[in-house]
């Protein structure tokens, strides 16, 4: 599924060099639910960006679904982001000028899906996150929890094999957090692999496995005992 070996990432800003990842290796099997934890600046966001094919690795190897993606071009990476990966962000990242429905349809626009099929699949994805009303509204007209559900619908609409969630509940209160985590667990139960960055132990406890990072290295990797199951 996901296999990275000895991956480093170095940022250069003029004279200053910043090594964000110092030889990280990780193997995630299909159907896993991994929480990546660690203090800020530990490199967990960098890891997520690399796994999400938003950024290229400096050295090492990244195999996604049996394909070496460390050598792909920008447009090939865009294709993989579109087909294989679904992103869920802390700040939802919905397009404010589009309706809920249009937001969910957008990944399929880039995939070249015909309009009629787009509409049907978007409605289906929205139904899976329990959101069938207000779909003609704009993101600013619905609550934070609803926005994150729209973002999840958008992430799953192209039926990706992996969902990458970067602090998906960071901007939400406890009650809504539970709602969102229930949806993510459901998706995981249906076979979608989930990688989630979080710094809250409560949230990490919804996962099946926890990876701890510090200073650009993985320092701990263990299965979750007494997992919270909704």
């Amino acid at each position: 599924m996901i296999r990275i070996e000895n991956v480093t990432k170095v940022y250069r800003n003029g004279e200053i060099q910043l090594t964000a990842l110092k030889g990280v290796s990780l193997h995630v099997k299909p159907g896993e639910f991994v929480a990546v934890m660690g203090p800020s600046g530990c490199g967990k966001s960098t890891l997520m960006n690399l796994l999400g094919c938003l950024d290229s690795i400096t050295s090492g190897k990244y195999i996604l679904n049996g394909k070496d993606v460390s050598t792909l071009s920008g447009n090939e990476l865009a294709y993989i982001r579109n087909k294989e990966i679904g992103f869920v962000f802390q700040s939802f990242n919905l397009l404010p000028r589009m309706t809920i429905l249009e937001n969910v349809e957008l990944p399929m626009v880039y995939a070249g899906v015909p309009a009629r099929e787009r509409r049907a699949r978007a409605l289906e994805a929205l139904a899976r996150v329990d959101l069938s009303e207000r779909i003609k509204h704009r993101p600013s007209e619905i609550s934070g929890g609803q926005r994150q559900r729209v973002a999840i619908a958008r992430a799953i609409v192209n039926k990706p094999s992996v969902i990458l969630a970067d602090e998906p509940t960071g901007n939400l209160d406890t009650k809504v957090t539970v709602e969102i985590m229930r949806i993510i667990q459901q998706l995981n139960d249906e076979g979608v692999t989930v990688l989630m960055v979080t710094h809250e132990p409560d949230v990490a406890n919804y996962a099946k496995r926890i990876v701890r990072m510090k200073d650009g290295c993985i320092i701990d990797d263990y299965p979750v005992q007494n997992r919270t199951v909704l």
Partner: peptide, 16 residues
């Protein structure tokens, strides 16, 4: 800029 970032994250290519 942010909109462009979002579009790229969900699969928009340079040409799009």
């Amino acid at each position: 800029t942010r909109e462009i970032g979002i579009r790229k994250a969900i699969g928009a290519r340079t040409g799009h």
